[in-house]
Design a protein around this nucleic acid. Structure first.
Length: 269
DNA sequence: ATGTCACATGTTATGTGA
């Protein structure tokens, strides 16, 4: 295992989120990005592998401890960290019947960090959209619980919501899509109105920023994307936010995921 | 309506999920 770093020795912390869209299929891409970007913590989504097939050894050789929840074919979330991580939760509370691997949370460097993968919700309307809205409701409830704890919290992942018209290229072709519907947008807005900071948007109030481009019709080359991957900060962390961005070029690599990594840097406590 | 990609089935294509 990689050496454990003492939390207090850090002056800054880089936290990233990346929907990898099949971790084994894209392991070379992931390792190359980790080596280049050197995040202290990486939240991953859409592992698309069973728990036993997670590439723990490769990531350990790259210098990362890991915690993950996998499932066959779909979903799956992980947390990678250079320092020790203590898992605090493996499923979103509120519905014991929901077995989808979409949420994992751990204490890392004195911060509670969650990697989350909200449901896509298509087609809408329909049961999948209902599941998305129910999941978002449960998530809001859990976020409120975390807030009451009064500890620094980062909620990072693929929210499957383009929060406003600035988070999607000018088009009408997505109008019926679950990612831009009023209800999920309202649910996301409620988070940012109740003390959670959308880190990337707070650093760039008006800029069009995308984190996802479909594989269809060279959408990346035309920069017709959506901002779906977000990093939310609790009130204690907001003043510590130094910078943030999207590693867009990762999306241009061969065999790339359809998402690009999003990262932030926060100052030490 | 379409586009692309990958997976699972028990296929040599088809559906499904994103």
């Amino acid at each position: 295992m990689p050496p454990t770093r003492i939390g207090s020795a850090r002056s800054q912390l880089k936290i990233a989120t990346f929907n990898i869209n099949n971790i084994n299929k894209r392991l070379p891409n992931l390792l190359a990005w980790l080596k280049r970007a050197k995040p202290d913590v990486a939240c991953l989504q859409e592992l698309k592998c069973e728990t036993g097939a997670f590439p723990e050894q490769s990531l350990a050789r790259a210098g990362y401890h890991a915690a993950w929840e996998g499932q066959k074919s779909w979903n799956g979330v992980a947390l990678l960290a250079r320092s020790r991580l203590i898992v605090t939760r493996r499923f979103l509370p509120g519905d014991p019947k929901d077995q989808q691997a979409r949420y994992i949370e751990a204490a890392i460097n004195g911060i509670l960090i969650a990697s989350l993968y909200m449901p896509n919700g298509n087609p809408q309307p329909g049961p999948k959209f209902d599941y998305k809205l129910a999941w978002m409701k449960r998530f809001a409830r859990h976020a409120a619980t975390l807030k009451r704890k009064g500890v620094p919290v980062v909620l990072a992942g693929d929210f499957n919501v383009a929060p406003t018209e600035t988070d999607i290229y000018p088009t009408k072709s997505w109008e019926k899509d679950a990612l831009v519907q009023p209800e999920p947008r309202k649910a996301f807005a409620k988070l940012t109105e109740t003390g959670w900071t959308d880190a990337i948007r707070s650093l760039n109030p008006d800029k069009r920023i995308y984190t996802f481009w479909t594989y269809w019709r060279n959408r990346y080359e035309q920069d017709r994307g959506l901002r779906l991957d977000h990093v939310l900060l609790s009130a204690q962390l907001q003043p510590r936010l130094l910078k943030g961005g999207v590693d867009r070029k990762v999306r241009a690599e061969s065999n790339a995921s359809d998402h690009a990594p999003v990262w932030i840097e926060i100052s030490g406590s």
